[in-house]
């Protein structure tokens, strides 16, 4: 399980949150909500190890999170290379040998587009390609920043299935969102903007 105690983080000169504590059990999910600029993305990057906490501790199963295997992180940007085909874009993510690239593409309904250069994909299809990396990741912790950005209703359902499978296997999902997500039983952490 993931436990955060007394987290505080700066973004530039501004303190975005402090004294933030939460715990997510294995198989659990946490929804980060709050207005723009309330620190959702900052918190996700901090959990991924891309940012730095000014104060507080992050524990994974009682040990520091930094010593746990890296999390699977989906940011605002899709990290899709336009010059490579959809399948080639997943090749680096598939190095762990967990699942196959055609399987991951099929899980997001991208099977027929495998050999298409990614520059021809629509914004929603690129987002699905970025989500397909999660299927290939062995990480128990998924950190998703607005995962449904640009997705159609059918793709949101596919994502719901992926999230449910991951949680059934004991995985943890933490996601920032403004839209309703198919995450039954998820707890909500509301981040508020605090002046000063």
């Amino acid at each position: 399980m993931l436990r955060a105690e007394g987290l505080a983080a700066f973004r530039g000169e501004r303190l975005v949150f402090r004294d933030l504590s939460f715990a997510v059990p294995a198989g659990g999910a946490l929804l980060l909500t709050g207005p723009n600029g309330s620190g959702k993305s900052t918190l996700l990057r901090l959990l991924a190890g891309l940012g730095r906490a000014e104060a507080g501790a992050l524990l994974w199963d009682g040990a520091p999170l930094a010593e746990a295997p890296p999390a699977a992180y989906l940011g605002h940007l899709d990290a899709v290379k336009p010059g490579l085909s959809a399948a080639e874009n997943l090749r680096f993510a598939a190095r762990a040998g967990r699942g196959s690239i055609p399987g991951a593409l099929a899980a997001l309904g991208l099977g027929p587009l495998a050999d298409l250069p990614a520059r021809l994909l629509s914004a929603g299809q690129r987002r699905r390609l970025a989500l397909a990396r999660l299927v290939l990741s062995p990480a128990p912790l998924w950190l998703l920043d607005e995962p449904t950005l640009g997705l159609d209703a059918a793709s949101v359902l596919l994502l719901g299935g992926l999230l449910a499978t991951h949680r059934l296997g004991g995985g943890v999902v933490i996601t920032a969102t403004h839209l309703p997500l198919p995450l039954p039983g998820a707890e909500e952490l509301r981040l508020g903007w605090q002046p000063g």
């Binding site: 990057r45 991924a48 190890g49 891309l50 295997p69 890296p70 999390a71 699977a72 992180y73 940011g75 605002h76 940007l77 899709d78 990290a79 899709v80 290379k81 680096f92 993510a93 990396r133």
Partner: peptide
């Protein structure tokens, strides 16, 4: 850096 791939590379372990 611009398309977000660098984040994923740094999280590759």
């Amino acid at each position: 850096f611009e398309d977000g791939s660098l984040d994923l590379l740094l999280l590759s372990g």
